[in-house]
Design a protein around this nucleic acid. Structure first.
Length: 209
DNA sequence: TTGTGTTTTATTGCCTCC
DNA sequence: GGAGGCAATAAAACACAA
């Protein structure tokens, strides 16, 4: 089966993994970044094996039963209305679907987890896009800076070939046209950067993330 | 058919809130 | 202290390529 997830963690490079991990730990699960985490090894050690072959108590078959399409559809509808499950609704849903209330609770728990991981993935993709955009902006700025330097170099070379990092106001005053173009470029870049920063801030507060 | 990867259901242990 | 939530994980069920 092919994963329907937009991102496969297996295909991520190291940088992607770190970015994704930082989102998952710091953004989504603040508890983990506040010293409440337990090492994986500890958890695994602590965990008792359940459902092990031959040690089933009560002798009942503890096989997992997949919910039928109708049940899932009903649960999805209910989840769409309200992500959390209060006692009354749980009992009602269970009765309606012929399930154990605990199964309904477990289904909602797992569904919330899936919902959250989708949100994290979406946030990850957005963040990645923003960073790519920032890179491009930086490259464009660099390009403009180089062009400006070479242009000024040409102007200065007629005055002895001096190349300066930032054109002096006296140089600009002798070149009104070039100065206007540079100002326009600078304005453009400032607007781009401003919009990008706004976007980042906006994104940061989406869904309380 | 079988090996492998993914999805779904269920469990465990911890935390927070009342 | 109990109920309920969450993260992490196990394991069954499932999909699919070879």
């Amino acid at each position: 089966m092919v994963s329907s997830d937009p991102i496969s963690k297996a295909t991520m490079n190291q940088e992607d993994k770190m970015l994704f991990a930082s989102l998952v730990t710091a953004e989504v699960n603040p508890r983990l970044s506040q010293g409440h985490s337990i090492s994986r090894e500890t958890r695994v050690r602590r965990r008792r094996k359940k459902n092990g072959k031959g040690d089933e108590e009560g002798g009942g078959d503890a096989k997992k039963r997949r919910l039928c399409d109708e049940q899932v559809k009903f649960l999805e509808m209910s989840f769409g209305e309200e992500k959390k499950l209060e006692f009354g609704r749980k009992v009602h849903l269970a009765a309606e679907l012929g399930l154990d209330p605990k199964q309904v609770a477990v289904w909602f728990q797992n569904r919330r987890a899936r919902h959250k991981s989708k949100q994290v993935e979406a946030a990850y993709l957005k963040l990645k896009a923003v960073l790519t955009l920032k890179d491009k902006l930086f490259e464009a700025q660099e390009e403009i800076r180089k062009l400006t330097l070479s242009k000024n170099g040409g102007i200065c070379s007629s005055n002895g070939g001096e190349i300066t990092g930032s054109p002096s106001s006296s140089t600009l005053s002798h070149q009104p046209l070039a100065g206007a173009v540079e100002e326009e470029e600078a304005d453009f870049m400032h607007i781009q950067e401003y919009e990008l920063n706004n976007y980042i801030i906006e994104w940061a507060y989406v869904d309380g993330m």
